[in-house]
Design a protein around this nucleic acid. Structure first.
Lengths: 333, 333
DNA sequence: CTGAAAGCGCTAACAA
DNA sequence: TTGTTAGCGCTTTCAG
């Protein structure tokens, strides 16, 4: 591999000059520049980014910490990140975390080891001490789909979303509204809990009594949702509408309803949450939280912070859109 | 940020000694080691990986080139890669390609710029000159789901898979078998074309005349598949079975069949290809090509090549498994 | 406009 | 077992 020195020799210039043309410095005469360019061409030279990194202290890399790609929502967010990053010179290093210890290790090490210029953390809220560390690190961090007062973040208001979904069902005349979700307490992201809170609030505000038998929250994945839906639907007084903690679960409910020959939305309304692609396919009414956009915005915010560290944590709230499709309907009186 | 020099000073040793304990060299006395360790602890020192990279020439990073994560199969492969990499010290840099020019740029630059120790290319077959370059580069490359004689690869035999799928339908007594797929000629991966070849071969071997009206191959995505299925199913003599080029399309066909009240598998058999998770959910009979495993194996092969460059391109064929579920059935005579 | 030289923080001979 | 020193390939003063 040729180095900058080989090029310099070949072009009969100093290595600083080669460096200058490499970095398109204006203070190089056209003649010299051309000579250098020619030498580069002839030698098929490519600058070594590692050496440059050591010298400048910048890596042109951003680190993305996110949960294993087991949920469509993570993938969709990542896609947004990648899309936004593609227009820049930054590379992206992926750190997937499967268990809390991995998350902690990444959050601890990444800011200190000069491997990346900036950090994007997706759907993994840091605790106070971690946030403190991140805030004081000399490389910027942006949280996507997670909140901490000390850090910049792209937010989704899950409580509001939960209310929105529930209110939609209420507006359609439903009173027997069930909530089916993943476990409320998770090692990672608490969004399910917030959505549940939104559900409770909406009931409260509409004077609809809460019924614990209408809540099942130990449901992971579509299959499990299908099973749990049976339980809900087999109740002596079954719900007329179900708010699912995410789209995947909602689709599981749809599956079960079909099996039981319960017509959706005629006999049962179902609303999801997320706005993943499958929701489109299945014509699922849902709360679209603009997943792709969250990734894009996260990158934009990080790039901004990279240019000039914000004096105070910035915050951007993504909109939540109720997408009415074919799985919710006015309840027959 | 403290450097190795600060640590050396603090511990009253030379920097080489610090380097030695950092790299757990055996030739350091326990006493010295402890002193150094203490200094490291006190200063909260972390070695700078970039400096190490420049010095050693190794980056502990592997580059993954793959198409935008638009298809579940890519995601599943990536998951396998990430899973296998998690057990190593390697990081992973993602290079997503959306158009051929990006692919070409990555394949051209990545091997030369010392950014990564090894390259994994997923579902993007290089052309001859690119393969030549890659083979001669001093960092190893492994192809996953793509073949080139000059390179190591993890392979799926799409022709065989196509035959397998078609033969399954034939074995069930079907004679009017349609093929619905994405475009046969794509800028990227030719797997669809091979599956189609398998389809043709199976027909041929079973003396079943080929009917061009049974082939639709311009279908991208589930929605489009739904539309195209209508065309197929509306034929004067509609097929009794459809082989879909991938699971997503198959699921689109299932959607349409439901709309048209065509009972699957009673009145129509549908088989997919890939073995994505949605195939499980929808009870789709399919050819499982072990996507996750392909990523895992790709990493293993790359790690092996990283230890000792293979003298000759290695090759591993992944098994293809017919998964009989609920969408194919013996044709009624 | 250009070149020499001093690092960036680490590893790896080579001596001691 | 340990320290000194010479790089790794680049950027960036600082003179000229």
């Amino acid at each position: 591999m040729p180095t900058i020195r080989d090029v310099a020799k070949r072009a009969n210039v100093g290595i600083a000059t080669v460096s200058r043309v490499l970095n398109s410095s204006p203070s190089v005469s056209d003649e010299t520049r051309n000579a250098v360019l020619a030498a580069i061409e002839e030698l098929d030279f490519t600058p070594n980014p590692i050496a440059r990194q050591l010298s400048t202290g910048r890596t042109s890399t951003i680190g993305v910490i996110l949960p294993y790609l087991t949920m469509p929502s993570y993938v969709e967010r990542l896609r947004g990140v990648q899309h936004a990053l593609a227009e820049t010179d930054y590379h992206m290093v992926l750190f997937s975390v499967g268990k809390p210890s991995e998350r902690d290790a990444y959050i601890k090490d990444l800011p200190r080891n000069n491997l990346v210029d900036g950090i994007l953390i997706i759907s993994l809220p840091p605790d106070d001490s971690q946030a403190e560390r991140l805030a004081n690190a000399d490389i910027p961090t942006v949280l996507v789909d997670a909140y901490h007062e000390k850090l910049c973040c792209i937010l989704t208001d899950d409580v509001k979303g939960g209310k929105l979904a529930t209110q939609h069902l209420i507006d359609l005349g439903h009173r027997r509204i069930a909530f089916l979700s993943e476990p409320l307490e998770t090692p990672f992201h608490p969004s399910t809990k917030y959505r549940y809170q939104g559900y409770r609030q909406a009931l409260l505000e509409n004077d609809i009594p809460f019924r614990s038998e209408y809540v099942i929250s130990e449901t992971r994945g579509r299959f499990k949702a299908k099973k749990m839906a049976k339980k809900l639907l087999g109740l002596p007084e079954p719900p007329t509408a179900i708010f699912a903690g995410n789209d995947t679960l909602a689709i599981g409910i749809l599956d079960r309803a079909k099996d039981l020959k319960i017509k959706v939305p005629k006999e049962l309304s179902v609303i999801g949450f997320d706005g993943i692609r499958d929701a489109e396919y299945t014509n699922l009414t849902t709360i679209d939280q603009n997943l792709f956009e969250s990734g894009v915005e996260g990158v934009h915010m990080l790039l901004k912070a990279l240019e000039a560290a914000p004096s105070t944590p910035c915050e951007r709230r993504l909109s939540l859109d109720l997408i009415r499709r074919k799985t919710t309907k006015k309840v027959k009186v």
